[in-house]
Design a protein around this nucleic acid. Sequence first.
RNA 1: CGGGGAGUAGCGCAGCCUGGCAGCGCACCUGCUUUGGGAGCAGGAGGCCGCGGGUUCAAAUCCCGCCUCCCCGACCA
Length: 493
Amino acid sequence: MRRGTRRRGPARAHRRRNISPHMAKTAVLTPQNRDFPRWYQDVLAKAELAENGPVRGTIVIRPYGYAIWERMQSEIDQRIKSLGVANAYFPLFIPQSYFEKEAEHVEGFAPELAVVTIGGGKKLEEPVVVRPTSETVINSYFAKWIQGHRDLPLLVNQWANVVRWELRPRLFLRGTEFLWQEGHTAHVSEADARAFALRVLDEVYRDFMVEVMAVPVLCGRKTTRERFAGAETTWTCEGMMRDGKALQMGTSHELGQNFSRPFDISFLDEDGGQSYAWQTSWGASTRLMGALVMAQGDDAGLRLPPRLAPVQVVVVVARGEGQVSEGAQSVAGALRSAGMRVEIDGRVESSFGRRVVDWELKGVPVRVEMGPRDLERGEAVLARRQRGSKETVPLDGLVPAVHHALEETQTAMLQEATAFRADHTHEADSVDEAIEACAEGFATLPLSALGADGEDRVNAAGVSVRCLLGADGGPPEIDTPEAGLVAILGRAY
RNA sequence: CGGGGAGUAGCGCAGCCUGGCAGCGCACCUGCUUUGGGAGCAGGAGGCCGCGGGUUCAAAUCCCGCCUCCCCGACCA
């Protein structure tokens, strides 16, 4: 069974060939429904996305994987900047004492800190921590930069690597070192900080995940137990993977005055009084790469939504005869002129089938195949990765046809993922029913039905409360009574 | 840390029990034939068998010690 794959829409093609992309004689990958974790590992390796580094928990992101990450960075970065946030950079090394200033924060991170005790061959006076997150250093500078209310809001983001000594690493999902973006802001009031944290959640993360990654996400509030160490409130975007498990894809925290007090981020307000700033922090990481693979991949490999794909169209020279190569060049040129990201595969010394399988593994959304026969007829074959279809298109109509295929693919991928999530979400009335439903996917449960010991009970069963939603299915208003909230439960990565 | 496995070519593995030339598949190199859904044939390169010690005429194999990695549980983007 090809889970979640749907064929839809009428054939626009002159002729539609009945060739499925899953025709390889021997399975290219372990099928998803046989062993999902194995399938995931296979995709990372065969699509040349990433592999393990030499130190446990470290990752080597290969060029193709990094190209996808760069696309993610670019899309996220422009959304961050549109909120008026500027990029900056703070040090990798943080004095250990900084970590001890906020009680919950220390407690939350102490077990997973990497600490440098020797530098230049000498024992250090004060050990330095390799940043697991940068609240402490950044806020120590915010304290210097913020004097009066006119200095606020202060909105800063950095792209960086961070280190957390994880016990059980998994490529992209949980690593000792990973890449991310972390935003840090300071505001004059609690309401301003809250509004900003929610804007980031919606306008940066949800918008990117839904509109670019084509992954529907549930945006809600974390329970006290699940919230970030040092935060007052943690907001999250939760996605469903194709094995029904949940993945936290991005978070936005309201820090209250938890850091501004110990780091003395204070300012003179309009009335001349001394106030502590209200803060937020928020991040999304290379975990998104894992989410992409697990939410959009199928048994033939990765599937990239066109808006994210570093290569949107690959023009495959089927056979190196006659003027085919020139024809492919000309087609590629026309597609590029129309603004598409295009690559030519002219490696005719490799077999056609081999190359096609490679591009399917890499998830390129549209493949244009050209051989002598097509050239003679003035045609090309347009293959869509998302639904595994092929159609023949006249060369003079190819650019609009490819453009249309990309647009349709983007829409279809989001629809498919949304339908999959709906099919794997169960509305439960009791804790036991919810736990059972989580074997297949998510369960919704009125918070009132979860009860006081409900979170303990589900956790004991390997299930967690992913987030709390308001009546409209979005992040709950802060003053919504608990009785009006819905808990989303699932097994998580 | 608790429990379970594994270290042999780039990757995946066999060989070990019963000591006797270092093997297989994939990948790689060369040549020819191929190329419209993972090509075929022929030839070739590639090894501190995790490390250290011991037994033995002889150790990947038996014995002792050490190291590392992976998987399952408690934390996390």
